[in-house]
């Protein structure tokens, strides 16, 4: 007998999932994907995968978060697909960075990066900061944004990302360096000028 047949009272019936969790999952998908159609497809695929996997649901998590866990894998698949559809070109500036003394000697781009114009650590308890932070991630250029999300938010390994993007680990380092720099500029602008 499956979880579905048992009518387990701890499990919200799938017929109620759309009304209870649809908007929540959609917002989560939008925070990573930014494409309404793709995000909606992701939510639908999550529900269907959830029904198939319901036997394995052990009730330790709220089903909402269990579904979100399934959806994270769907999001990673979507980002991978979109990465595969584009070629990542190395420009001269990036090549120069990889060949630079500082990179070869110490794995850094510069000894004197531009400073933060505010202390981000002091904003960790401020909900408004995370809204601005998410918006800044959205504004990163492709493929910096995709690489940044996969590596920093979805915890994918360097090897996996390099394979998907068909780039070397050194070039992924350059991409992540550029993403961090862009993010710093955006945060400095958007957080300080938020009012």
């Amino acid at each position: 007998m499956t979880n579905l047949d048992k009518g387990n009272p701890n499990i919200t019936p799938p017929s109620q999932w759309v009304d209870l969790y649809g908007d929540y999952l959609y917002r989560y998908a939008m925070s990573r994907l930014k494409n309404p159609e793709v995000a909606a497809d992701c939510v639908q695929d999550t529900f269907l995968a959830g029904i198939k996997a319901l036997d394995r649901f052990d009730g330790r998590l709220d089903i909402k978060y269990w579904l979100r866990g399934i959806m994270r894998n769907k999001i990673i698949d979507q980002i991978r697909k979109s990465i595969k559809a584009q070629t990542v070109d190395i420009d001269k500036e990036d090549e120069a960075l990889m060949e630079s003394f500082w990179f070869k000697y110490s794995g850094i781009a510069t000894t004197n990066p531009d400073p933060w114009e505010f202390n981000p650590r002091k904003q960790f308890d401020n909900k408004e900061f995370w809204v601005v932070f998410r918006k800044c991630i959205d504004q990163l250029k492709e493929p910096l944004k995709q690489a940044f999300i996969l590596k920093m938010l979805e915890d994918q390994t360097t090897e996996e990302i390099c394979k998907e993007m068909d780039i070397s680990p050194n070039y992924l380092w350059v991409i992540l360096h550029r993403a961090r720099e862009q993010l710093k500029v955006l945060l400095n602008e958007n957080w300080i000028n938020k009012d």
């Binding site: 908007d23 989560y28 939008m30």
Partner: peptide
């Protein structure tokens, strides 16, 4: 409790 990234909803 909810993703506060945006106030979008499914159509």
């Amino acid at each position: 409790n909810d993703s506060e990234c945006c106030d979008v909803c499914l159509e």
